[in-house]
């Protein structure tokens, strides 16, 4: 119940913040604007629109996850609202989980609304979407949950700006972790190779959640792959949230 109260309040705070609507407006504008790029690619307009729509959902979702997530705990400390919350009979992990859950709820609404806008727009323009499009949106949402958990962990450890930079770097590197494992022969036997290979296993591999090109081309996605990607995201997110709860447990506020 206490987790729910904190989650509901976090969701309510974000919904009453105008910045959210500005971001959603730009995301919707990107989806509508995708038609313009469709015109210059003959016969590929629907494919381009699906591609851009999924990219818009991902990018604007990540922006919300990073900027809201890295401020989530820090803002409560900075504004001192945390004092009257943590002195209540609630565990600190309940507070961290509640904040995350609130942001996860907000992202669910944002991803759902943007997916619905894209689907209706493509339908009105005579296109047909396959199940791959909706599965791609689902995996983007799962990726956003992982990013949110990382942002909340950093929110408990460091200042929001530094946290945002680290999460953004992790987001960029997380889409390209394959380069750490497919190293050229010059790296053989070096310490750099061992470090980069260790990073490959430690950093989140966000490319697992990226099936936008399959969705754009209408290629069917194997259900087993989707289940595997969801499981990977769930385990990684749970691990980050556990670390966030531990980091916050003994923190002086």
């Amino acid at each position: 119940m206490r987790i729910w109260a904190v989650a509901h309040n976090t969701f309510r705070e974000a919904v009453r913040d105008r910045v959210l609507y500005v971001l959603v407006f730009f995301a919707a504008a990107s989806i509508f604007g995708s038609k313009a790029l469709g015109w210059i690619s003959i016969g590929q307009d629907i494919k381009i629109m699906v591609d851009i729509s999924l990219a818009a959902i991902s990018v604007f979702g990540v922006l919300i996850a990073i900027f809201v997530g890295t401020n989530l705990v820090h803002k409560e400390i900075d504004k001192r609202t945390i004092y009257t919350i943590l002195c209540r009979p609630m565990a600190r992990y309940e507070f961290v989980l509640g904040k995350c859950l609130g942001l996860a709820g907000l992202l669910a609404v944002v991803v759902f609304v943007m997916t619905a806008i894209a689907a209706v727009y493509v339908f009105l323009l005579g296109g047909r979407l396959t199940s791959s499009f909706y599965l791609a949106a689902l995996l983007i949402y799962w990726k956003l949950l992982l990013i949110t958990a990382l942002a909340v962990l950093l929110s408990a450890l460091t200042a929001p700006i530094l946290g945002a930079i680290i999460v953004f770097a992790a987001y960029v590197v997380g889409h390209a972790t394959n380069i750490f494992i497919n190293l050229p022969p010059q790296f053989d036997g070096t310490v750099s190779k061992q470090v980069l290979q260790a990073l490959y296993y430690v950093l989140p591999n966000l490319s697992h959640f990226d099936i936008a090109s399959e969705a754009a081309n209408g290629v069917a996605i194997a259900p087993s792959y989707v289940v595997w990607a969801l499981a990977y995201g769930t385990v990684y997110t749970a691990m980050l949230l556990t670390l966030a709860a531990l980091a916050f447990e003994d923190k002086d506020v």
């Binding site: 309040n9 309510r12 705070e13 504004k79 001192r80 609202t81 004092y83 009257t84 002195c87 565990a91």
Partner: peptide
């Protein structure tokens, strides 16, 4: 938790959620 159940705390210059 039992102690916190029994405490009412008023911080100096109390801050609450501005949107509530």
């Amino acid at each position: 938790r039992k102690a916190r159940q029994r405490i009412g705390y008023l911080p100096e210059n109390p801050y609450f959620y501005e949107y509530l």
